[in-house]
């Protein structure tokens, strides 16, 4: 099941099952610190596993971000407001960078693109 907040993109990608939650990007699964509504969204999402019968279905969920729909008109802005694309690692905080460099999670290092299910099985053996 794919959750989506971008109906046109999800229609184009055409996954087997999807639910569309009409929220601003960055909120596919709900609202910050609103666990009750997020629970409802997830229950509706999981129910769709049981009710959908047709490949390519997209169920439109009934939740609303706010009664005011002005967020839909904010647009992409005049310029490109995304950060430039570089290979520099972007940590949320400097403390995270230090923690990663200290290799606190080295044993379960889960970070690297050269990991494979085979190496994963080694960790979960038994």
């Amino acid at each position: 099941m794919t959750m989506s907040s971008a109906l046109d993109i999800t229609r184009a990608v055409n996954p087997p099952r999807a639910v569309f939650n009409d929220f601003p990007l960055g909120h596919t699964a709900g609202k910050p610190l609103e666990s009750a509504v997020n629970r409802e969204i997830m229950i509706a999402t999981l129910r769709a596993f049981e009710t959908m019968r047709t490949p390519g279905s997209i169920e439109l969920l009934p939740f609303e971000w706010s009664p005011d729909h002005s967020w839909k008109h904010a647009g992409a802005g005049e310029g490109d407001n995304r950060a430039p694309r570089t290979e520099e690692l972007t940590y949320q905080t400097e403390d995270d960078m230090i923690a990663a460099r200290e290799g606190k999670l080295a044993e379960e290092c889960i970070a690297c693109s050269n990991w494979s299910p085979e190496s994963r099985e080694r960790h979960s053996a038994g």
Binding site: R85, E87, E88, T90, Y91, M97, A100, C112, S113
Partner: peptide, 24 residues
């Protein structure tokens, strides 16, 4: 795909980063 990592893991970069993180 929201760029979530766990503190202690290596963060992501923004240039076609195809790596994964496994979050317990």
């Amino acid at each position: 795909s929201g760029g979530i990592y766990r503190r202690g893991q290596i963060a992501f970069h923004s240039k076609d980063d195809t790596s994964l993180r496994l979050i317990p």
